[in-house]
Design a protein around this nucleic acid. Structure first.
Length: 311
DNA sequence: CGCCAGGCAGTAC
DNA sequence: GTACTGCATGGC
């Protein structure tokens, strides 16, 4: 079987194409990142595991099946040319070792990183991220996943995978497709009061009144203001869209307890050495605190999670 | 039954 | 500017 080495990769990481598989390997016999940590840390809602440990989700127009095999993250059943979008989605070009070293200067962040060192920030589609986080408001993660899945099944394009006969995933519906819907047509996804919000967002994006790519390039406060003009988008949802969909790593989406966590961590504000990594720090903290309730206050929890971080 | 869920809009002061 | 409430739905 032919092997094609794909470049560029950050130091110590390798991306290889072998037939219809994409193999990503990391340093010292470790996978380059954690699929579970990355896909289940609350930044995306469209992935889940099948009965055999394969993570299934859609990147762009590609039905992806991925799992960890030894020291590699493997994507199977790819067609020619699909690996580029996948590498971009998983933020392949970025040096996460350097990022972790920065975060680990803070003792609490060091515990959060040690708890799940393989987390990456995905480069999600701007519209998909905005729409998903509108649906997230006053909602819990399992139900957000349910609604997102129902939305894609209702309005997305069906996709098959050669290794998963009988399984159909759907692309995330475009803003144009959603904008053609009525509230009544959206009833089956059970989004409740959020349905009218995603319709407003879809109409603004579809008509060009809101250009998400242009918003991504605006100064932060202008970008926030542009997003908050959408009905149902406030500061929290806007910041989630900015961080997860528009690549703005300087943003920390603040819910009530994240405010408390940040105040406890950095009472005088974010330290200068972490500038540009605020959003990544928040993601490690969010995942850590969600799976280890009380971890921020408990030294015992810190030891249980491993007091020192591999960097 | 009540409470909560990665909030926000409307309203009152 | 802050404080309060309703909102749809489902899980516990």
């Amino acid at each position: 079987m032919s092997t094609e080495l794909l470049l560029p990769s950050p130091a110590g990481l390798t991306a290889r194409r072998q037939g219809d598989r994409l193999l990503l390997t990391g340093e010292e016999g470790e996978p380059p990142f954690s699929l579970e940590g990355t896909l289940q840390c609350g930044q995306c809602f469209g992935w889940w595991q099948d009965g055999e440990g394969w993570w299934q989700g859609v990147v762009g127009n590609t039905f992806c099946r991925a799992r960890e095999e030894g020291d590699a993250v493997v994507f199977a059943g790819l067609r020619p040319g699909e690996e580029g979008a996948i590498l971009s989605y998983f933020d392949w070009d970025r040096d996460y070792r350097a990022a972790r070293e920065l975060l680990c200067r803070n003792p609490v962040l060091r515990r959060a990183v040690a708890f799940a060192p393989g987390i990456r920030l995905l480069r999600q589609d701007p519209w998909e991220a905005l729409c998903s986080f509108i649906l997230s408001q006053n909602n819990n993660i399992p139900r957000i996943q349910k609604i997102v899945r129902a939305l894609t099944a209702l309005l997305g394009q069906p996709l098959a995978h050669p290794d998963a006969p009988g399984t159909v995933l759907h692309t995330f519906p475009t803003a144009e497709r959603l904008a053609r819907c009525t509230l009544e047509e959206l009833a089956p996804i059970r989004a409740g009061f959020r349905a009218k919000y995603i319709l407003d967002a879809a109409r603004q994006v579809a008509t060009g009144r809101l250009d998400l790519d242009a918003v991504a390039a605006l100064p932060l406060e202008e970008a926030r203001a542009a997003l908050c003009q959408i009905r149902g988008v406030g500061p929290k949802v806007a910041d989630c869209a900015l961080l997860y969909g528009l690549g703005r790593w300087e943003v920390v989406p603040m819910d009530v307890w994240m405010k408390r966590a940040m105040a406890q961590l950095f009472p005088k504000g974010f330290p200068r050495y972490l500038r540009g990594y605020e959003g990544l720090a928040q993601q490690f903290l969010f995942h850590y605190c969600r799976l280890c309730p009380g971890a921020l206050k408990s030294r015992a929890a810190g030891r249980a999670a491993g007091g020192t971080a591999p960097v």
